[in-house]
Amino acid sequence: MLIKLDYALFHWINGLAEHLAFLNGLMRFMAQYAPYLFGVALLIYWFTFKMPNRMMVLEAILTVCIGFVISWGLGHLFYRDRPFVGHSVIQLIHHDANVSFPSNHALGAFALASILWLHHQKYRVLWVILAVLISVSRVWTGVHYPSDILAGALIGAGCAVGIHTFIRSRKLPAIFIQAAIIFYENWEQKLGLKPAKQAKG
């Protein structure tokens, strides 16, 4: 029953690629390139040279890494082919015929959007909207089922909340992260990568 519902929802969303073809260019971009916007954002936050922002970036990286490990395990336990392997679909982007469940794109997007939200960053609502668009685009372009997306989003957001809560509720993880950043900043200062004004502070 759930499998039939999942495929019916996939078929409806994927069918929009034919009925709303003028959006296909946007969906291709969202499915393939929009995730890099999160990477650009993390780089920008890192190079503000502010400790809270750098702690947030490391928290985000840790969250995504843990999420991908969970995804890898689930992918091996519950292997599922991509929609285009067993069905006739409208496939707008190329993709290898590898494991479909869960969606790493949805996982990464929701993990990072959740971290930005939990740290009360400016435009955090836009990052959540971007994560939603990335997730929908993966179904629209024919490379994921809706359940792949839902699982990935839940794992990503769940890991973000779990890691954030763990770091905030215990002193040791925060101290360790701060120590790692300070060690890096000493190296950064020696190489002259850190602005002189910031180095003095």
Rank of each mutant, 00 (worst) to 15 (best):
I70C: 10
G86I: 05
K190T: 08
Y145L: 12
A131I: 08
A157D: 00
L23Q: 05
W12T: 13
H119T: 11
I70Y: 07
S71H: 03
Y79W: 11
H95G: 01
A153H: 00
V40P: 00
A180R: 06
N186K: 10
N24L: 10
G142L: 13
I181K: 05
P146G: 00
W12H: 09
S100G: 02
A31G: 10
E18N: 15
H105I: 13
H120G: 12
V125K: 13
A17S: 15
G86K: 15
P83S: 02
F10C: 03
Q121Y: 14
M1N: 08
H87A: 07
L2G: 11
M1T: 11
V99C: 09
E59L: 13
A157W: 00
V85Q: 13
A21K: 11
L92T: 06
R28P: 00
G67T: 04
F68S: 01
K171P: 02
L193R: 09
L37N: 03
A174W: 06
G158I: 06
F10T: 04
P35L: 02
H76V: 05
L23N: 02
L9P: 02
L5G: 04
V64C: 04
V69R: 06
H11P: 00
V132C: 14
I90T: 11
L172G: 01
L43R: 10
S137L: 08
L62M: 11
F22M: 12
R54S: 09
A157I: 04
L130Y: 08
F22C: 13
G162E: 05
A21W: 07
D81H: 14
L26I: 12
V143Y: 12
L5W: 13
L62A: 14
K200D: 11
V99R: 06
K4V: 08
L133S: 07
Q91N: 07
Y79C: 05
M1P: 07
V128C: 05
A151N: 02
I93G: 00
L37M: 10
E59C: 14
Y184K: 05
H120P: 01
V69T: 08
T165D: 03
A109E: 00
V132A: 11
Y145G: 02
L191I: 11
A8E: 09
H94I: 04
L23Y: 12
S147T: 09
A17V: 05
K4L: 07
K194N: 08
A111V: 14
Y79M: 09
F110Y: 15
R28T: 11
L74C: 02
I70S: 04
P83W: 01
A131C: 06
S135W: 02
S103H: 04
I115T: 05
E59N: 12
S135E: 00
V161C: 14
N186H: 12
P102C: 14
K50H: 11
G156V: 15
F22P: 01
Q189G: 05
V143M: 12
K190C: 07
G67K: 01
I13V: 14
E59H: 10
Q32R: 14
A113Y: 04
L107T: 03
G73H: 03
V89N: 01
N98T: 15
F68M: 06
F78H: 11
M27Y: 04
T48N: 01
A109P: 01
L9I: 08
Y123V: 09
H119V: 04
K50F: 03
